[in-house]
Simulated scan of single mutants.
Amino acid sequence: MAVPVPVLRLPRGPDGCSRGFSPSSPRFRALLGGPWGARGVQGVRAALRQRYLWGLAAARGRPTRFCLRAGVGVDAFFGAADVDAVALQVDALRTPLGVQAAALLRCHDVLAYSFLLG
């Protein structure tokens, strides 16, 4: 059985809608002025983005379970994701209504997805 992972939610920002640190806060300035600096943060973000893209490339053709809004679960073979993370292309999408040979799933509708063994 999979172990549940807690989700860390950052407090609301000073504008009321963003999450994270205010650019004027001492913690934010310490992060940018610390040992990483602005270029170090950019390098770390680039490395994380590269790992994410390599993970997507390795997932091509793997059986995947998608949990969608309204509690709907569907199975498909992972195909690809667009650069802006707006849609996921899948093959052999099995829904409660039938099987679609190919489909696009909007990332906005996907709550979670996991790769199945086998």
Rank of each mutant, 00 (worst) to 15 (best):
P4M: 01
V5C: 04
P6W: 01
P6H: 02
V7S: 14
P11W: 14
R12G: 10
R12A: 14
G13E: 00
G13M: 03
P14C: 11
D15Q: 01
G16V: 01
G16T: 00
C17D: 12
S18C: 08
G20F: 01
F21C: 10
P23C: 05
S24W: 09
S24T: 15
S24D: 15
S25Q: 07
L31H: 09
L31S: 03
L31P: 01
L32H: 02
G33W: 09
P35C: 10
G40D: 10
G40C: 04
Q42N: 05
G43H: 12
R45C: 12
A47Q: 13
L48E: 12
R51H: 04
Y52S: 14
L53M: 08
A58M: 11
G61L: 11
R62D: 01
P63A: 11
F66N: 01
C67H: 05
L68Y: 03
A76Y: 03
A76N: 01
F77P: 03
F78V: 03
F78Y: 14
A80G: 07
A81S: 12
D82Y: 07
D82C: 03
D82I: 08
V83P: 05
D84E: 14
A87C: 09
Q89E: 15
A92R: 10
R94S: 15
R94H: 14
T95G: 04
T95V: 08
L97T: 11
G98L: 04
V99D: 12
A102C: 10
A103H: 11
C107G: 12
H108R: 13
H108W: 03
V110D: 08
L111S: 09
A112Y: 11
A112C: 12
A112E: 15
Y113A: 08
L116T: 07
G118A: 00
